[in-house]
Amino acid sequence: MEPIIQVEHLCKSFEAKGGTVEAARDICFSIEKGDIFGIIGLSGAGKSTLVRCLNLLERPTSGTVRVHGKNLTELSEKDLRKERRKIGMIFQHFNLLMQRTALDNICFPMEIAGIRKKEARKKAMEYLEIVGLEDRALSYPAQLSGGQKQRVAIARVLASDPDILLCDEATSALDPQTTRAILGLLKEINQKYGITIVVITHEMSVVQEICNKVAVLDEGVLAETGTVEELFRSPKTEAARKLIFSGRNQIQEMKGKHLIRVTFENKSSFEPVIGNLVLEYRTPVNILYADTKNINGQAEGEMILQLPEDRDIAEKMIVYLKNIHMGVEVLSADAGY
């Protein structure tokens, strides 16, 4: 099947005061229909620029962006506007029209599409019900909370009946509870309406919560792409590791040699893996960190272990863990983890 979004050799540079800034360098990836695709990176990694290249709010310096097989960079202004109607976008700061009620905000894309006012209003009410805000139809954005504003923005996006929804840090201005609710709503939209979702975020937790695939962006370069499980189990790049470890301050205090990161699936957690390991080699290991995370509804566990000083035993232990299908990654002590 043809991917719904296909990005090839995309480059974007800006002229800034200090010279040319390369916000995206030779980026290639594709997104399949129905995916919830995460693009994660630290701030300044070029995520926002990249997502804006997907609907050509930013025109790429070079490279192509294909949506439904159509190369957007070659479309006329008019055709591009038509394509954009099929690509919804929500933003960190919601970007609602402040002088319009929630209902009229949702009517806006339908006005653009030339739908009659009466019909638009009727549909807008339905979309408000989907996001659970039917009682706030006549409220102005200033009277709504952040989470409610984002719900209105989502309803507004649904009103243009899109195939794709781009989310630019859509939950970054919200508290954790509201974030979870909005992410839940996005997931529901993905499943119910089959809308492909692209999520731009700097938070690994957002990716873990809803994405099935993820691309790691680091200083304008695509560091790695894959499924969320793959990234979590065996991050291949420094950038990915940093993102996985972000928000875990205690790691920085873990000094010493022979640190490994062990990841395991739900079913393995029933076996006393560490106990067996210690019994097998008659040498204690030090558990520095342990946690389970919910990734796409599956519990994934991770642990940071300090293996014995003896290199021989340490290496044997790694082989042992790998043999019982644990994800094992050796962390270098000087890497700052």
Partner: peptide, 13 residues
């Protein structure tokens, strides 16, 4: 707010 204008452009306005 430039963001609101951007949102409108993204809707195909």
């Amino acid at each position: 707010d430039p963001g609101v204008i951007e949102a409108a452009v993204s809707m195909g306005a």
